[in-house]
Design a protein around this nucleic acid. Sequence first.
DNA 1: CTTGACCTTCCGGTGGCTGGAAGGCTTATC
DNA 2: GATAAGCCTTCCAGCCACCGGAAGGTCAAG
Lengths: 148, 148
Amino acid sequence: MNIGAAAARSGLPAKTIRYYEDIGLVVPARRANGYRDYADADVNRLAFIHRARDLGFDIESCRRLLALYSDRSRASADVKRLATEHLADIERKMRELELMANTLRHLVQHCRGDDRPDCPIIDDLATGEFAPAPAPPPPPSTAKANPR
Amino acid sequence: MNIGAAAARSGLPAKTIRYYEDIGLVVPARRANGYRDYADADVNRLAFIHRARDLGFDIESCRRLLALYSDRSRASADVKRLATEHLADIERKMRELELMANTLRHLVQHCRGDDRPDCPIIDDLATGEFAPAPAPPPPPSTAKANPR
DNA sequence: CTTGACCTTCCGGTGGCTGGAAGGCTTATC
DNA sequence: GATAAGCCTTCCAGCCACCGGAAGGTCAAG
């Protein structure tokens, strides 16, 4: 099967499949004319990688997973360890993103977003500490405070 | 101030500071001997970028934020828009990671992780659909089932 | 005068592709 | 047989945000 067909079946772009050959992940046979010739097993490996990548595994982990995939005497413990470590990585990244998101939400909430320059977001970036929009001063005795 | 001092004050590695000059983010003066000479304002800009990067802004956004930082007639709405878009990006990434994490947790939970090859994680990667570990068959009439 | 701590530029590599150029092969149509 | 379209090939370059290291210049102290 030509690379185009392998691409269609695995869901990967042909470019990516060539790259995977370059780095030795899936190396197909070659025909007399130099064209790559993918067997069904190759396409299975490609689709396997595709799904592993979609789950966020990096190429090195894909390589290990592939090795386990074709090792009929594997211990599922090895697979589980890979997956568990990767899960921990993802959870760490999520916590990092959550910290960023919390700070950003906080800053965005306090920025008036009008045509004036005062901006707690810029202030925070400039000073390293959150500088809130000045709280509207306690209204004078009249109830009609802060007309803006 | 030499680049080493600017690095210490901004918290950025000298290498990174040189890179920021390369891409035109913070371009210091030069002394007669060719050494970079950072003014306080430069260091402020570097620290500003440092914090923006820590919040996950990419370099292009940092460039825009820096422009707004030094634009005294900026509209805070422009800053807020940048931050809001970035926040949305982060939240999108978090959702992606959460999907991965959910799948991985599910798979990991169902993998026995012993020395045998049966593994729902590998099965899922191979077939694209979750293949749970076969539920332990209903125990035979004796109560002493599954001694392992 | 030498040592060591700075500083300079330049080149190459990271991960995981993606785009494009320049050219060969195959198949269909005129 | 010519030609065009649509495959395929290799190779080179670029993306992002740096980091490491080599080769060499500069400066202050002992």
